[in-house]
């Protein structure tokens, strides 16, 4: 029998990590992995949600929030991250914004054989941009979210957490 912490990533765990790391604002565009997380975030009076209509917009909004002293986090899917390349370059990397992007890893399969090009290019994109990233698949991986925050602060650059838990956990 599997320990539940090793088979699913619970939204409560992600929220706990956000709170532990002092996140004040979530700049996000919903994807199929985050609907339950949305309910939790919305219920938290200390967390501001800024919904965007295109993922690249999240980068400039985040840069503005950071410039004004807030601690934002970006929550998007890998498809949107691919679309956001120039905004990541210019507004996050160019302005030395130490932000964590939690990115839904659409198409991810642990065995590496996928049929979704969104997954095919995700890690290659990050490597091309020289953006450090961590992969989390279940609750037992969640301390990597804190490691991502710590790294972002240390290098004053964006760091990505890939969420490889597409089909359960967040969705319930």
């Amino acid at each position: 029998m599997n320990d539940v912490s090793t088979v699913a990533l619970s939204p409560e765990t992600v929220m706990r990590q956000m709170k532990q790391n002092g996140v004040t604002d979530i700049v996000w565009l919903p994807d199929s992995e985050t609907n339950w997380l949305y309910l939790l975030m919305k219920a938290d009076p200390d967390l501001r949600l800024v919904g965007v209509t295109r993922e690249g917009h999240a980068c400039s909004i985040t840069a503005g929030l950071y410039a004004g002293g807030r601690k934002p986090m970006i929550l998007i899917q890998n498809t949107g991250m691919l679309e956001s390349g120039d905004s990541i370059r210019g507004w996050l990397m160019g302005l030395n914004v130490p932000v964590v992007l939690m990115v839904g890893y659409r198409g991810y399969t642990r065995h590496g054989v996928n049929t979704d090009t969104a997954a095919t290019y995700t890690e290659r994109f990050l490597m091309a941009f020289n953006i450090p990233f961590y992969l989390i698949e279940n609750d037992s991986d969640s301390d990597r979210i804190t490691k991502a925050f710590e790294l972002a602060e240390r290098i004053r650059q964006p760091v990505v957490v890939l969420v490889g838990d597409e089909y359960h956990g967040f969705n319930r």
Binding site: D25, V27, R48, V50, V52, G56, H57, A58, C59, S60, I61, T62, A63, G64, L65, Y66, A67, G68, G69, R70, P72, D86, S87, R89, G90, W91, G94, L95
Partner: peptide
């Protein structure tokens, strides 16, 4: 005064929004 130049075109309004929310 924030002469940002052009970090990435199309983003100034988002930056302004973020800054306004933060301050």
């Amino acid at each position: 005064d924030l002469p940002l130049g052009d970090p990435a075109m199309g983003g100034h309004s988002g930056f302004g929004l973020g800054l306004a929310l933060a301050q």
